[in-house]
Nucleic acid binder design. Sequence first.
DNA 1: TTTCTAATAGAAATTATTTTCCGAAAAATG
DNA 2: CATTTTTCGGAAAATAATTTCTATTAGAAA
Lengths: 288, 288
Amino acid sequence: MTKEISADQLMQRIAEEYEDLSKQLKVIAKYVEEHRQTLVLERITDIAQACEVQPSAIVRFAQRFGFSGFSDMQTVFRDAFAPAGGNVNNYQKRIRSVIATQDTPLSNTQVTQNFIAACQQGLDELSQALDPAAIDKAVELLVKADNIYVVAVRRMFPIASYISYALQHTAKRVHLVSGLGGMYHDQIRSIRENDLMIAISFQPYGKETRYCARVAGQNKAKQLVITDSQLSPLARNADAVLTVKEGTAFSFRSLTSTISLCQALFIALSYRLELVIEETRDAGAYDD
Amino acid sequence: MTKEISADQLMQRIAEEYEDLSKQLKVIAKYVEEHRQTLVLERITDIAQACEVQPSAIVRFAQRFGFSGFSDMQTVFRDAFAPAGGNVNNYQKRIRSVIATQDTPLSNTQVTQNFIAACQQGLDELSQALDPAAIDKAVELLVKADNIYVVAVRRMFPIASYISYALQHTAKRVHLVSGLGGMYHDQIRSIRENDLMIAISFQPYGKETRYCARVAGQNKAKQLVITDSQLSPLARNADAVLTVKEGTAFSFRSLTSTISLCQALFIALSYRLELVIEETRDAGAYDD
DNA sequence: TTTCTAATAGAAATTATTTTCCGAAAAATG
DNA sequence: CATTTTTCGGAAAATAATTTCTATTAGAAA
């Protein structure tokens, strides 16, 4: 019936026609205007009560603006609301529509744009879902540790590699558990109490990483875990857990959020250690 | 009944007791964990459908955690949700607010937020500055190549590592020039005509990468270069140049745009090769 | 003052949503 | 392998929410 009207458009119509409304409807209009954010969460009776009005009045209001009823109007706000909780829907819709039109194959640039959009969405979510307590704890662990072991496999190995590189710029001893020569066991073996293990692992949670976490636990080392869920098998024994939900496009998960978080952690650490971050300083001179 | 429990507390309890849950309840727990933002907007049937489970299972889940039913549990998320509606996290605003309070030392979370914002800005720029011709050319080179050598050092090595990992999922032969044991020379030596070298190098342009590019040039291999400027020393002899301007915060360059571009390239390649991207397929079974 | 119209409240009906219940299946236990 | 316990699916019942309907009221016009 009412097709594709946006919340903003609706609000504008309400504003335009406000003067022509009956006293009661004005009250409702005011309320709608004022609570458009939370409107989706409320039931018709809640609104009616808040306006000191009968539910049927709300229905009349909705109908006055061309909706079939209250619920119909509410969907407008629901749609407008979704982006606020993360533009998940928007973005996923876009991808789906792209995939739907697969008659004309996608250009390389379209694929790329889509994927970048997914990365941005992932960063949005990361930013919104940051847990200050967890971050503080993570930085704290980093500050206190002298020996740091970094573990991640396959898809996540580049992340471990980066963390390891970054930490080399501090005075700490960094051990990258690379598995080179199949020596996971031998590389993690020497971890001890008061050492820190940083493990990065996402579904399906690599066997090697889980193994290293077990060893770290047995040796009473501290554990900083970067993973996709509090329910991750690595999370239970961790001293600090940072969760990251990566964006996805073409059923392909991005790495941007994770790497972004790791870099941020490093900056925060440097800040705490009062290191001057001069990443470019020594790089050129190396091995000349 | 269940009094004043916060969403965070609930999530924690779910995490703690996760292992004791039945298979079905675990699925629901995962879903709840992942969609806590949007949970208030969904009906029990929506969630049931998403979990491929009966509505009654959702109720059982809620009851498992002491609620009288689904609705009772939902109110917890509703309460936690209300404030979220207002803060439309626009990253520029966030940067400004962070900058505005720079007298007092930054909290870890502020540092992180700030850096994430820089990453987002970087992605924005990347998205806007994409050069379709260059991307097409890059994908073309990838499609045609049989042997691919990947080179990057220090800060950028994780990128090379990722590219190498990703390309392993194609039929191509991938050579990661890691410099392990100081053997850059020996690793790049065998590159030939019709091979492709992917080099990733940003200021100050690592000596090793430049060296590899020179060898590649001498051996008449094709060159795909990811760098920060058309004026980069690597750009002049390249067959395709992709430029990336990374975001910067605290005089620290992000890596997000570069990795995002690389992942996108790989997806585009897969698309062209008509590969099904099933990243999770083989990962778990490995080395069991 | 009366009459008419539009607005409203409230009850009733309808529809949507959640919860309960129970038999079947699966898993755990002896 | 049989038995007990737990988990699961599905339909029926209960509850909640929304919409419709109708009698009443307020206010304007005659």
